[in-house]
């Protein structure tokens, strides 16, 4: 992984030396320093740092103004406000200006390290989730389907990033909301015949009432979603994924909208018929520190 980049905004060369040493120890590459708002304005566009340490008092203005400028020009940069002052009012103002964390001078190394870790934990967790969610849900679905001996095999896999697509339902859909450090949602869709076949095998019955089919499909979604989220939580407990109860949609004229969030679709072929799954997550907000 490449080094995270930092920018130090401070008008005291003593503070800059201390911050430089702390950041380098944490593995950051210091790509620029600024001592004034004019300096920030000049450097921020080329810098695009991952982290900015922001002194609240600068020679030609304050850190609030500089923070607003950074939010505007480099919205992905995380700003850590630093000041000798620390009261409710200034913290509130820093937060409003776009800072994600606030730390008081003199800087305690342990506190500094812990805040930096937390600031970037969300980022790392999102990367971990993005890299693994699809495989986890696919494995969960395949593993569960194996119980029914329907020989599932992958027909297609497709990522949907920014454009919205729609998919005509085959007849019945289950959705599960996923809530955690980053949130998402799962949709599984199939025909009535497919779910009836699976339910018959699961319940060991030759005839099935409609309510039994619906109840089974709810449980089907719950198991696939729940098992996949447990699998992802074992990668990192910080994900804290939980599933909401299933909602089942049934109808001849039903269209599923996908792509409001970054998601991946999977189509499986099986002896019971085709099974469609779409799963996606959205990056959660940063927590204030």
């Amino acid at each position: 992984m490449s080094k995270l980049k930092a920018m130090i905004v401070d008008d005291s060369s003593f503070s800059i030396t201390i911050l430089r040493s702390l950041l380098e120890k944490k593995g950051f590459e210091i790509i620029c320093e600024a001592q004034s708002i004019v300096d920030v304005k000049e450097k921020i566009i080329d810098c695009k740092p991952d982290l900015v340490t922001m002194d609240m008092t600068l020679s030609d203005g304050d850190g609030l103004e500089a923070s607003k400028l950074i939010v505007e020009k480099s919205p992905n940069s995380k700003i850590m406000a630093i000041s000798a002052m620390m009261d409710a009012e200034i913290i509130k103002k820093a937060k409003e200006a776009g800072a994600k964390a606030y730390i008081q001078k003199p800087i305690d190394e342990e506190e500094f390290n812990s805040i930096v870790d937390k600031l970037f934990a969300g980022e790392e967790l999102y990367r971990l989730l993005s890299d693994n969610y699809f495989e986890a849900f696919k494995e969960s679905l395949m593993t569960y389907l194996k119980r029914f001996q329907v020989n599932p095999s992958v027909k297609s896999e497709e990522q949907t990033n920014s454009h919205i697509k729609s998919k005509k339902s085959s007849g019945i859909s289950v959705t599960i909301g996923i809530i955690g450090r980053h949130c998402g949602r799962l949709v599984i869709d199939m025909s009535d015949d497919t779910i009836i076949e699976l339910a018959k095998r699961a319940l060991n019955k030759s005839e099935l009432a409609k309510d039994e089919m619906i109840a089974f499909f709810g449980e089907f979604g719950n198991i696939v979603g729940g098992n996949a989220c447990s699998m992802l939580n074992t990668f990192n407990r910080g994900l804290s994924l939980r599933v909401s109860p299933p909602t089942i949609f049934h109808g001849k004229d039903l269209t599923i909208s996908i792509g409001e969030i970054k998601s991946t679709s999977l189509v499986l072929q099986s002896n019971a018929g085709e099974i469609f799954m779409n799963i996606g997550f959205q990056r959660g907000d940063d927590e204030w520190m």
Binding site: T175, C183, E260
Partner: peptide
């Protein structure tokens, strides 16, 4: 806490919330 929304559309959709 809340999840991301799922959107569906169509005519005569039966919704089952299992509650």
């Amino acid at each position: 806490d809340i999840s991301v929304p799922t959107m569906m559309y169509g005519e005569d959709i039966e919704i089952n919330l299992q509650k």
